[in-house]
């Protein structure tokens, strides 16, 4: 059975299009709010939505998403509540949804229980940025059985061995972190990205989405020419706190840039 995420990439590939994958923090500042935003993102042509799960120690995140995480925690949002939220969301939308969560909430939930409940609720994939594939045996096994996609990360420092390992463990797509650093870092479009993505292409034919540091439509456009999908997080989360109209205009401008 092919997953909703794989199907999305196949469909896009046929149309020679690239995926637009916005990230928002679930429950920032409330889950009702998140529901409205997901709807807006879908209306504006997003292909996949990445939902962040708040955590007290978001190691891979820069200040913008750290603050979003703090706001969501203040609203008492937990992994369990995010899963229930996706279940509710599934009554109104079938857009592929990927959860980005740190490992400890999953560990505490129980890997098997988490995979079962998430899949059952309608989650399509999961990214655990602080869990390398080397340590993810249990999560991968449970996810394969349930057909939940596991998406692992590659970075500019990844060696060829690492690329092979991550490609093998990943389903749905491979998440390429465009910079050494944390979310919201500054992207540098100096040709090295192109080279590294082609290194990954040599090892796998799985779709590659690029994230961390993409913030302007120009950057999104440049990244979409190299990759199969563009992930934009911090720049959206930041605007969520400014004007909602501006956010919508911004999302549309990203969508138009990614073709």
């Amino acid at each position: 059975m092919i997953s909703r995420i794989e199907e999305k990439f196949r469909e896009l590939m046929k149309k020679k299009k690239k995926a637009f994958i916005p990230y928002i923090m679930a429950g920032d500042p409330s889950l009702e709010n998140t529901k409205d935003i997901v709807q807006m993102l879908e209306e504006c042509g997003s292909d996949i939505v990445e939902l962040g799960v708040p955590f007290t120690d978001p190691l891979a995140d820069g200040p913008i998403i750290q603050r979003a995480s703090e706001r969501a925690l203040k609203a008492a949002v937990t992994l369990k509540k995010v899963i229930t939220f996706v279940r509710d969301l599934r009554q109104s939308t079938q857009i592929p949804i990927v959860l980005m969560t740190y490992y400890n909430p999953v560990f505490k939930y129980g890997e098997g229980n988490f995979v079962r409940d998430a899949k059952d609720a309608g989650v399509d994939g999961v990214i655990v940025p602080d869990l390398p594939p080397d340590e993810a045996g249990g999560l991968i096994r449970s996810s394969r059985k349930a057909s939940l996609d596991t998406i692992f990360l590659l970075a500019p420092t990844s060696t060829p061995d690492r690329i092979k390992k991550v490609a093998k463990a990943s389903r749905g797509f491979i998440y390429y972190v465009s910079v050494t650093g944390i979310t919201g870092s500054r992207l540098s479009l100096d040709g090295s990205l192109d080279k590294l993505v082609s290194e990954i292409r040599k090892c796998t034919d799985k779709p590659i989405a690029v994230g961390f540091g993409v913030s302007t439509p120009e950057e999104a456009s440049a990244v979409s020419k190299i990759s199969d999908g563009v992930i934009v997080g911090s720049a959206i989360v930041k605007r969520l706190y400014e004007s909602r109209d501006d956010l919508k205009r911004y999302v549309i401008s990203l969508r138009e840039a990614i073709q």
């Binding site: 955590f55 007290t56 925690l73 937990t78 400890n104 909430p105 560990f107 505490k108 939930y109």
Partner: peptide, 20 residues
Amino acid sequence: SLGVLQGCKSYLLQDDDGNV
């Protein structure tokens, strides 16, 4: 109780949802 933080599995002061 047992948890994973900062690349390390050990005892951890955490709530039922795995937040520290």
